[in-house]
Simulated assay, not measured.
Amino acid sequence: MTLKVYLSGEIHTDWRERIIAGAEGLDVSFDSPVTDHEASDDCGVAILGAEDDKYWHDHKGAMVNAIRTRKGLEEADVVVVRFGEKYRQWNAAFDAGYAAALGKSLIILQRPEHDHALKEVDAAALAMAREPEQVVDILRYVLTGKLPA
């Protein structure tokens, strides 16, 4: 069995790298949104032209980024959504809802301080993890049936 995993959510920590490194040797492929914050914010105006109004600047970027995000979510077997500590990730919540609506297997990665705010998101997930290594353990178990040592 091969799993295609989409890694969505905050882009300011190394959680993606920890999951990818931990899953080495497993039959898993990973995809994610563009994680270069500046490129993600400015892609619309860099490609389609400048905007004087910040709303339209952001709107263009969101639309261009949505092409990649939709494809990644739709093609994924498993969607991991990370909610970080520093910023409110409305886009992560949207991705979790979209993945749930598509019937994707959803793993939420969050800190305890977000438990109350994310209770509805967690209710749609098949697992809620605290650390990236727990996500790796879930993937390993799903693929091999082996529990962590």
Score class of each variant (00 low, 15 high):
Glu38Gly: 09
Ile138Ala: 14
Val78Leu: 11
Asp41Thr: 09
Leu102Thr: 14
Val81Lys: 08
Glu120Thr: 12
Pro112Ile: 07
Leu139Asp: 04
Asp77Ser: 09
Val79Ala: 10
Gly61Pro: 04
Met1Cys: 08
Ile67Met: 12
Leu48Val: 05
Asp53Ser: 11
Gln134Ala: 10
Pro33Met: 06
Arg130Gln: 10
Gly84Ser: 10
Ala129Asn: 11
Gly25Trp: 03
Leu48Gly: 07
Lys4Gly: 06
Glu75Trp: 06
Gly84Cys: 05
Ala23Lys: 13
Ala23Thr: 10
Ser105Tyr: 08
Ala100Tyr: 03
Asp42Ser: 08
Gly145Asn: 11
Leu73Cys: 07
Val81Phe: 02
Lys71Glu: 12
Ala93Lys: 13
Leu7Pro: 06
Ala62Gly: 14
Arg140Met: 05
Ser105Pro: 00
Val136Trp: 01
Leu102Asp: 12
Ala39Glu: 07
Ala76Met: 06
Asp42Gly: 02
Gly44Thr: 01
Glu24Lys: 15
Phe30Arg: 07
Val81Met: 05
Asp52Asn: 13
Ile108Lys: 07
Val34Asn: 03
Thr13Val: 05
Ile67Ser: 12
Asp36Pro: 00
Tyr98Ser: 08
Ala92Pro: 03
Ala129Arg: 14
Glu133Met: 08
His114Lys: 13
Thr144Ala: 04
Glu131Arg: 15
Asn91Ala: 14
Leu106Trp: 01
Ala96Pro: 10
Arg140Gln: 12
Arg82Asn: 08
Gly49Val: 01
Tyr87Thr: 14
Leu143Thr: 09
Val80Met: 07
Phe30Asn: 07
Lys119Ile: 11
Ile108Pro: 06
Cys43Val: 15
Ile47His: 02
Leu139Asn: 10
Ser29Tyr: 04
Ile138Asn: 08
Leu26Met: 07
Ser29Phe: 02
Ala92Met: 06
His59Phe: 03
Asp14Arg: 09
Val28Asp: 05
Asn91Ser: 15
Ile108Arg: 05
Val135Ile: 14
Val5Glu: 09
Gly72Val: 01
Val45Ala: 07
His12Ile: 02
Pro132Gly: 06
Ala149Ser: 13
